[in-house]
Each structure stands twice: as structure tokens, then as C-alpha cells.
């Protein structure tokens, strides 16, 4: 299951970060590392990007980027 399919208000534990190069590195740098809890808080008015809660701060990424983040389970 990937992060872009998670319902607003739900979250999960990150299993792995896909993608490559700088994009992937940026996601990791921002704290989206395996075994971290992430929650989807909101979707932008036009359906993209999405708003996440991670490591007690708010981060926004596009669905395209979110589709590269695999979760273990939806909570």
C-alpha cells in the first residue's frame, strides 16, 4: 500500500521509500524514513498535493511523490 492511497485522517508506518536520486534523498532528509509513523491530514482543494504529519511537523508533498512511499499498514 502506498501513501497516496491513504484516506484523509488515516496514517501508517513507513516500510520503504522508492524513487531515486535527489527526490528520494529529499524525502529521506525530511524525515520520511522506514519505521516512522506518518499521517495524511488533508488534500489540497484541487486534489493535489497532500498534507502530512510526520515527526510532529507538517509537510506537503505531491501525490506523485507520495506514490513512492510504501506503508506497512493503514491505521
Amino acid at each position: 500500500m502506498t501513501l497516496d492511497n491513504i484516506k484523509v485522517g488515516n496514517g501508517g508506518i513507513i516500510e520503504s521509500i522508492g524513487g531515486e536520486g535527489l527526490l528520494r534523498r529529499r524525502l529521506l532528509d525530511m524525515g520520511l524514513t522506514p519505521n516512522t509513523r506518518v499521517e495524511v491530514r488533508k488534500v489540497a482543494p484541487m486534489g493535489d498535493p497532500i498534507e502530512l504529519l510526520i515527526r510532529s511537523y507538517v509537510l506537503t508533498i505531491r501525490k506523485e511523490e507520495a506514490s513512492k512511499i510504501k506503508l506497512k499498514e493503514e491505521i
Binding site: 527526490l23 529529499r26 524525502l27 525530511m30 498535493p49 498534507e51 511537523y57 507538517v58 509537510l59 506537503t60 508533498i61 505531491r62 506523485e64 511523490e65
Partner: peptide, 9 residues
């Protein structure tokens, strides 16, 4: 640059 941005308080 991909859109990865913090939304500060």
C-alpha cells in the same frame, strides 16, 4: 525541483 515543502505553524 519536486514539491516537498514544510507548512510551518
Amino acid at each position: 525541483v519536486p514539491f516537498i515543502m514544510e507548512l510551518p505553524a
